[in-house]
Structure formats: C-alpha cells, structure tokens
Design a protein around this nucleic acid. Sequence first.
DNA 1: GTTTATGCAAATTCTTTGCAATACT
DNA 2: AGTATTGCAAAGAATTTGCATAAAC
Lengths: 140, 140
Amino acid sequence: MRAEDYAHHLESCGVRPTATRLLVFRAMAESRHAMSLRELDERLDSVDRSTIFRTLALLADAHLLHVIEDGSGVALYEVCDNPGDCHPDDQHIHFYCRRCQRTYCLRSIHVPTPALPDGFRTEGVNFLVKGLCPLCSEQP
Amino acid sequence: MRAEDYAHHLESCGVRPTATRLLVFRAMAESRHAMSLRELDERLDSVDRSTIFRTLALLADAHLLHVIEDGSGVALYEVCDNPGDCHPDDQHIHFYCRRCQRTYCLRSIHVPTPALPDGFRTEGVNFLVKGLCPLCSEQP
DNA sequence: GTTTATGCAAATTCTTTGCAATACT
DNA sequence: AGTATTGCAAAGAATTTGCATAAAC
C-alpha cells in the first residue's frame, strides 16, 4: 500500500488521518507480527506512548485493528485483513509459546465460527493456542 | 462434592491440601462463573491476596484450574472439569459482553481443536467470543 | 474561534516478589 | 531441625486519565 493510500484507508473508516495516526497505522501495517503498545512505543520515537495508546483504541473502535491477547497479560494489536468487516472467519489463530514467550500468527488457520445460544451477538473472536513452538519443542 | 473430597482431589494432583488451599479451591469450585484474583480476594477475607495469587498459580500448574482471559486485561480462573487431563476438547468457549463486562461460560460449546503446523505442541487453548449478551442486546 | 489531537506527568490497577513469621512433617 | 506455606509490605509493569499546549478545521 502506498503512503497516501493509508490516509484514504483511515478516512473510509471515519478516522481523521493525522500525521501521528498515519505513523502508527503504517508501523502496524508494515509489521509482520502483532505488536504490543510497548513495542510500538519503542519503534516510534516521535510519538508519546499515551498518544499511541489512544490511537490504538481509536483504530480498534473503527475496526481498522483488532486486539488479541496472548496470555502474557499484555494486549497485542494487529491490522484487520478486511477492515470494517472483521468477521470471525477472517481471523486467524494465534499461538503463544510458553518458553520463548513469542506469539505466532498462524495465518493459514482460520478461526471457526461456533453457533452461540440465542441472544448472543458475536462481534469478535480471540482464539489462542498455548504450548511449545517448533524451535522450543526441539530443545530439552 | 463433600468437604473432605476436596482434599483428596488436591492430593491426587500432587498438591498438599492445606486449609488455605482448600478454602481457595472450594470457593472456585462452588462458584458458577470464572473468577478473578480480585473477586476471590474479596470473598475470602481470611486469606491474603498474595497467597491467593500463589495458590492459583499452583493449582493451575497442577491442572486443577485453568486460566482464561476475557479481554478486560485481568485473568480469570476456573476449575477444570477433567482435572489433570485438560484437553482442548474438554474446554468450553467463553463469551465476554462488552457492555455489562460479564464473562459467560458457554459450557455447551466445546473448543474445536485445530490441526497446527508441524512442530507446534498444543498444551492449552483459550477461545473467547466478544460481543453483546442476550440481556444487553435487548436494550437500546 | 471552536473543536480535536497530542505530550507530559501522574494516578490507577493488577501482578509479582522479598522477607520474616508461622505451620507442618 | 528442616522444609513448605503464609502474611505483610512493597516493587514492577502495564493501562488509563487530567490537564495544558498545539494543531486542525
């Protein structure tokens, strides 16, 4: 995606594309993995952490990002593949390795959509598998 | 389950059944929903919060409890239906209502077990669905 | 000029640990 | 005695908010 396209992308979801927001969203979009607030803050020297925090909340509300939890207690953020239309089916599973504490995006495995009892309305899903990753399960 | 049975239950998983641990486990077992550390602490006046914290970690390690995350940032604990043998298939889905911020245990819906790429070893799963619960989706 | 965003600093909340005292074997 | 457990207090880490300044419209 080209630089100016990011601006249109945000606008199409009702978010004003300020310079700061474009920086944040671009960093997210160009990252190949889900990022925490801390990680994003370390990468973006020019933006304050609280601003990044508020920006992430805003982008998540606008369905441009979704939030995942890897079991370590910190929230991770990731750009939606289908922004504004974030079906459970479009989301993939995440794997958290308890040894190296890395979170893997298993993009090839989609989250199944369970049928819920009457009255429950699904807006998002978070499917996390925990265990040992290939690298760590080799080691003793 | 009768009182003395709790003791045997802990022992069978290699946990010494102290008075404190029985109090904690019993409170968990008798609760109909998953509880946070804070909630447990408020209910158990006689036990210090740090002790509860360590006890929960111990019980979780012994596969007597499992930890779930509801997206609110705090960990919830819940007794395993099949202690010591907590297969993904045995676990159910949780539903977090963004309006009333309650976490529902949907015990009737089991977590599907996805086939992971080679090398990944599954030890646990956490499948959370977010949205609006029946009570909150009625209100405007 | 009014509204919206941002930076800075600090408050809040939850988790986690050190250490001394207690209980258990 | 010696190990394991608990309470108290405090440290650590992450999230969240208040408010003044700066930017956008």
